[in-house]
């Protein structure tokens, strides 16, 4: 292993790998945020009284969870532009080439998968909130909006946090798959450097260490968030 390969600047790959880590983090955060929004929406649909909404949400989670993320990424990458063009010309009368930037493609694919998994977590957490609390909130005259923000959301967040922490880890790791369509994050950067220097082991080890660092740091963050969310709960 030749460590001068990891030098900073134009002669080495150190700065490129660090930049890759930032791209990984950025796409993971965007995809995760999208995943929580999609997941909350799906959870609401699954809990709703309208069967068609439940069916749609169920079909979505079944399909997304049953197909490899790699295929979803390829599909959106190759098919997303055509679909967007159809929308652009059909709805807006815009006749030109339209495509999804790779960063956005990756965010959407990984976010779609995170959404399918977090839907179950959020739905489960909502079901755990005791009915009596909602009734009590009604009794003291809270509006629907107040009941939602003051009673439901804080508790759902607390119950859902461990599960959502796991989904964050999956999201972070799944971003490595976006390398196959050319987003220059950790994995793609490592592959480029490995091919150019013929030292694959060196660069894939660096990639593994970067992921290990990112997960370890975010793990700590989630543990902190959990103890913060549980601050009002008495220990038995």
């Amino acid at each position: 292993m030749d460590l001068t390969l990891l030098a900073w600047g134009d002669a080495g790959w150190g700065d490129q790998m660090a930049l890759g880590a930032l791209v990984t983090l950025a796409v993971a955060i965007c995809a995760y945020a999208l995943g929580i929004v999609v997941g909350a929406g799906l959870a609401a649909m699954k809990l709703s009284g309208l069967p068609p909404l439940r069916w749609i949400a169920q079909a979505y989670t079944t399909v997304i969870r049953g197909i490899p993320e790699l295929l979803v990424i390829y599909l959106v990458f190759f098919g997303g532009g055509a679909a967007l063009r159809a929308i652009a010309s059909g709805m807006f009368g815009y006749e030109g080439y339209v495509d999804l930037p790779i960063f956005l493609t990756g965010t959407i694919c990984i976010g779609a998968s995170a959404g399918a998994y977090s839907a179950e977590v959020i739905r489960g957490a909502v079901l755990v909130v005791p009915k009596g609390q909602i009734e009590a909130a009604i009794a003291v005259g809270m509006t629907r909006r107040q009941r939602f923000w003051r009673v439901l959301v804080p508790q759902v967040a607390r119950y859902a946090l461990p599960g959502l922490g796991n989904i964050w880890q999956f999201t972070l790791k799944d971003t490595s798959l976006i390398s196959v369509i050319g987003l220059v994050e950790i994995m793609r950067q490592a592959a480029i450097a490995a091919g150019s220097t013929k030292e694959p082991f060196t660069f894939y080890v660096v990639a593994a260490l970067l992921y290990l660092g990112l997960t370890s740091l975010s793990n700590r963050g989630f543990l902190r968030a959990e103890s913060w969310a549980n601050r009002g709960v008495r220990r038995a």
Binding site: S176, S179, M187, F201, T202, V205, Y211
Partner: peptide, 22 residues
């Protein structure tokens, strides 16, 4: 800890292409 904290793709490439270096 290590295997749950790193992507499978990295593990796969490390084992396949990485072993070639040695």
């Amino acid at each position: 800890y290590v295997f749950r904290s790193t992507p499978l793709l990295v593990q796969l490439f490390l084992i396949y292409y990485g072993s070639g270096q040695f």
